[in-house]
């Protein structure tokens, strides 16, 4: 008997392919999510391969060419040049890198943190440490996130990493709250009770029984939040608390150009449009991810 079970098939290639097909079908029901996917992939490609794609890759650094300063969009400089003669298009492409790093870095930090806090506080809901954790979360939530991020980053040296930390501090309570809510209702589900009755460890219950049921929501929120995290990063760099010049950051580019509005409008407007496109792209993608992950059964 045991010999023929040894060759028990795992999830076959066909099964997996079918699962992917179904997921793609749900995702593609909304055409806007495909638009989102295209935008996000483009941003990713442009950011990563900036040196290969950008017309003037060297303009992303401390490059100065006053003879070409303040030029409007033309065939040579598609989006025009800034006050020291750098190609805005090339700089935007490079700034995508920082923006993506910002989004990914923040989420890589806050999702584990928020999840663990939420799981622990939600599962041991009536314990004192749960109340303590959630009150701390509430205090953070009570302050507008942008103000909190501004205050925190003003206390630190302005670097990309520090602005990531500042945004993370403002953002993790939202994840903690969400996971807390899901866990505290899910801990009364009978499948959790069954695992408890079998004598499963708390680690197993939290991370193997409860967490898998939260993943869909986490993933959806993650995609939807990406754009807003990037916007907050840009806001910090707008007031000079993010990535420092000469490295291009979307926020700094907008604030530099704002002084020359409306005459040299292209300096501020194009980076602003870039920010908008990023947010729209991630929102459309997030909606698609939501459709894909939440319409099961």
């Amino acid at each position: 008997m045991s010999t023929n079970h040894a060759s028990t098939p795992g999830i076959t290639k066909r099964d997996r392919l079918e699962g992917l097909k179904r997921a793609w079908y749900k995702f593609s029901l909304n055409k806007m999510s495909i638009v989102g996917l295209v935008i996000v992939s483009l941003i990713l490609i442009l950011g990563v391969f900036q040196p290969l794609i950008a017309p003037y890759p060297e303009h992303a650094g401390a490059y100065v060419n006053f003879s070409a300063a303040n030029q409007p969009p033309s065939s040579q400089y598609i989006l025009g040049t800034d006050t020291v003669g750098r190609d805005i298009l090339s700089r935007i492409f490079y700034a995508f890198r920082g923006a993506l790093l910002m989004g990914l870095g923040v989420e890589a930090f806050i999702i584990p943190l928020g999840t663990i806090v939420g799981l622990i506080a939600g599962y041991w809901k009536e314990k004192w440490f749960s109340t303590a954790l959630m009150r701390v979360t509430d205090i953070f939530l009570a302050v507008p996130p942008l103000v909190l991020a501004l205050v925190v980053s003003a206390l630190m040296r302005p670097t990309l990493f520090n602005s990531m930390m500042a945004v993370s501090i403002a953002w993790w309570p939202m994840y903690a709250r969400m996971i807390y809510g899901m866990t505290s209702s899910m801990r009364n589900e009978l499948f959790v009770k069954s695992a408890e009755l079998l004598g499963a460890s708390k680690f197993h219950i939290l991370f193997r029984e409860i967490l898998p049921n939260c993943l869909g929501q986490i993933f959806t929120k993650m995609t939807l939040d990406m754009g807003w995290v990037i916007l907050m990063g840009a806001s910090l760099s707008f007031v000079g608390l993010g990535e420092q010049p000469p490295t291009p950051a979307l926020g700094t580019m907008v604030s530099d150009g704002a002084k020359y509005l409306p005459d040299q409008w292209w300096i501020a407007i194009f980076p602003s449009i870039a920010i908008m496109v990023i947010i729209l792209g991630f929102n459309f993608l997030g909606d698609g991810v939501k459709d894909m992950l939440t319409s099961e059964e």
């Binding site: 499948f191 009755l197 193997r208 049921n213």
Partner: peptide, 14 residues
């Protein structure tokens, strides 16, 4: 123990 509603006693994600 076997519970009343098998839909809720088995984790849908496992």
């Amino acid at each position: 123990m076997v519970f009343q509603d098998p839909g809720t006693t088995l984790n849908p994600r496992r």
